[in-house]
């Protein structure tokens, strides 16, 4: 690289923030489920993928009816994808995880891996394994920088991603902090047995957690579906892995941690590509994770675990 170019740096920072926000949205699902029942929901990435497919179905469906007004398309796709994804999230919990609750922690994990393989192939079987693509719905953006130097672009789509992410996160934080259900969630996360004794319907709270996590994954699905314009049945796996890494990085079980972890991971990847080599971005991302965990064994914002006797 030549001299340090602030506009180039800003561009890479924006790129990192964009991808990081969506990691964060998916990571919420992991972190909430983990916080409450202490299981890694490996099928979460597949729920994100189903959200993306639902968005594509909604967008092409609306196009067939001649709906072209963007806000309608966006909100319509968002609602439809959230509905489908949360239903799938609810069903997965009911079918594959609830019967296993209370046993060894590894058992739901294997069930989740099985569910992940199942969902991936379910979609592949009916929608085909090749990529499907939709055209740009929102193009254009702002440009900064000298005309002869490097120009930073901030697309409208990126702005939409930031705004939607911030709004969803804010709404969720508020909901967890203020609402009755949110209080119940916190109580269950604190101590499931005790919450049960105090008359909280823990089954309902757990179902609710899966539904919320799935809905946020669907939001990420819609945003990235519109941003990249492409999906396939395998897209959820790698995205899930990254989001899971983000959740652990930030401290699994902690909502702000998931957000922070997602953004750190996104920026790390972008900066590795920018100033080092793209082929090592995953190595650096995982290396960073290992490093952070070595110094903070429960992640950046994770609560240190109390050893209960």
């Amino acid at each position: 690289m030549l001299a340090f170019d602030p506009f180039y740096f800003a561009q890479q920072l924006l790129n990192g923030l964009t991808i990081g926000s969506t990691y964060a949205l998916i990571a919420i699902g992991y972190t909430m489920v983990y916080g409450i029942i202490g299981m890694i929901n490996f099928a979460h990435g597949e729920i994100y993928m189903i959200g993306m497919y639902s968005a594509f179905v909604a967008i092409t469906g609306m196009a067939a009816f001649g709906i072209e007004f963007l806000p309608v398309i966006f909100v319509g796709a968002l609602l439809f994808a959230m509905l489908i994804s949360s239903t799938v999230g609810w069903a997965v919990e009911r079918v594959a995880y609830r019967p296993l609750r209370g046993g060894n922690r590894l058992i739901p994990l294997i069930s989740a891996i099985g569910m992940s393989i199942f969902l991936q192939n379910y979609v592949r079987l009916f929608q085909g394994s090749s990529d499907v693509a939709i055209p740009h719905l929102l193009s254009g953006g702002y440009t900064f920088g000298a005309a002869d130097g490097f120009q930073t672009t901030l697309s409208y789509m990126q702005i939409l991603i930031f705004v939607t992410t911030i709004v969803s996160m804010g709404a969720l934080t508020l909901f967890i902090a203020k609402s009755r259900m949110g209080r119940a969630c916190r109580a269950v996360a604190e101590d499931l047995k005790m919450a049960n004794l105090l008359g909280i319907d823990t089954n309902r709270v757990i179902s609710f957690t899966f539904v919320i996590g799935a809905a946020l994954a669907a939001v990420a699905g819609v945003l990235l579906g519109m941003y990249y314009g492409v999906t396939n049945p395998y897209i959820g796996f790698i995205a899930g892995l990254k989001a899971f890494t983000a959740a652990v990085l930030g401290g699994i079980g902690s909502l702000p941690g998931a957000m922070l972890g997602g953004i750190i991971l996104g920026i790390t990847e972008a900066m590795t590509s920018a100033y080092f080599a793209t082929e090592y971005k995953d190595v650096v991302a995982f290396g960073l994770l290992v490093l952070i965990l070595l110094f903070r064994p429960t992640g950046i914002l994770g609560k240190p675990e109390v050893e209960k006797i």
């Binding site: 690289m1 890479q12 790129n15 991808i19 990249y228 897209i235 990847e269 793209t278």
Partner: peptide
């Protein structure tokens, strides 16, 4: 001369690098 990861969806970082 760089490698990307097959299956990735976001190439904005490497595009910015080429532009730079």
């Amino acid at each position: 001369f760089e490698g990307i990861t097959a299956g990735d969806k976001d190439f904005s970082a490497i595009i910015a690098k080429m532009k730079q």
